[in-house]
């Protein structure tokens, strides 16, 4: 692997793809790794897989697609300076949703506005701004997106979009800088009902963890959000489905005293009895915190 691991994808042939800053590495079910570089992007951050096996990779410089890891295509419509941090596919329609920061230079780390929500209806060949993207925004413009989750609850399509609130170095929750939006069947959830003041208070900041900071469990009827190196909270999926006022609960309130972890990626899995588990990856940043980063498996249904 070259660089820091950013994301893992499950490919159609049951192999696993690791996305790092400067390459992708494919792992066979037997545990053999093959690393391949990619063109065009200055670094990679995330990806998704379409039903036809197309692999979509996003990062600093745009979005790439490939089917064989030898021929790559750059998607149209994504600004070349964009820092794509989130990709998600609607598994019923193959529509691809993308978002990220407007730019990235490693020094400023963060600029406003972000890319807003981008959408592709042609297998990630091209992207356009989502029709509601100008409302998925803060006072600085379109949201700098870190994570997108697309899920169906019954027949209702839910898209949860998380990003930067006040931004690194500030991180004071403010209604001027919302950090979570929800679309229900292409209708924007009333931002007031998201109760972001409570959420940011529970999380300790107004930032959603990049790549996999949002996970929806239909079985647990809950939506979970992770805030980088801080905490995790969840709310009722039924409340979201009805566009109710959301009430958030801090996940660590359910942990034993002294139990701690840094909130990173969220993943769903199942134990041997078929019970649904929420896996929580520790990702505290900073040299002190890096010494403890357990992965936790939490039974949720």
């Amino acid at each position: 692997m070259t660089g820091v691991p950013r994301d893992f994808l499950w490919l159609a042939d049951s192999s696993v793809l690791l996305i790092t800053d400067y390459a992708v590495s494919k792992r066979t079910p037997q545990g053999t790794w093959t690393t391949t570089s990619f063109p065009c992007l200055r670094s990679a951050q995330t990806g998704c897989v379409l039903r036809d096996g197309t692999v979509v990779i996003g990062g600093h410089g745009g979005i790439l697609t490939t089917q064989d890891f030898t021929r790559w295509k750059i998607a149209d419509g994504v600004p070349t300076q964009a820092f794509i941090r989130a990709l998600a596919v609607d598994e019923r329609t193959d529509y691809v949703f993308a978002g990220g920061w407007g730019s990235y230079n490693g020094i400023e780390r963060y600029t406003r506005p972000g890319t807003g929500l981008l959408v592709s209806g042609d297998h990630a060949k091209s992207f356009q701004p989502h029709p509601l993207t100008d409302r998925i925004a803060d006072v600085g413009g379109r949201l700098s997106i870190n994570a997108i989750e697309v899920q169906y609850y019954g027949d209702q399509q839910l898209i949860l979009i998380g990003g930067e609130g006040s931004g690194p170095g500030v991180r004071r929750p403010s209604p001027d800088y919302p950090f979570l939006f929800i679309l229900r069947d292409d209708r924007l959830y009333d931002p007031r009902k998201l109760n972001l003041r409570q959420l940011s208070s529970l999380l300790g900041q107004d930032i959603i963890t990049p790549q996999h900071g949002i996970k929806v469990s239909v079985r647990a009827r809950s939506a979970f959000v992770s805030s980088w190196a801080r905490d995790i909270a969840f709310t009722s999926l039924d409340a979201i489905a009805h566009e109710d006022w959301l009430s958030w609960t801090k996940l660590t309130a359910h942990l034993a005293a002294g139990e701690q972890f840094g909130a990173g990626h969220l993943r769903l899995g199942r134990d041997v009895h078929g019970r649904e588990l929420l896996f929580v990856g520790g990702a505290p940043d900073g040299p002190v915190a890096r010494g403890f980063t357990p992965i936790r498996a939490i039974q949720i249904a």
């Binding site: 691991p5 041997v272 992965i295």
Partner: peptide
Amino acid sequence: DGTRAFWVDPVDSQLIIAGTWS
């Protein structure tokens, strides 16, 4: 060191792959 990204086999969650910072 810290886990930056990880993957859990959705079929058999006994298999976990963790990518660490360094």
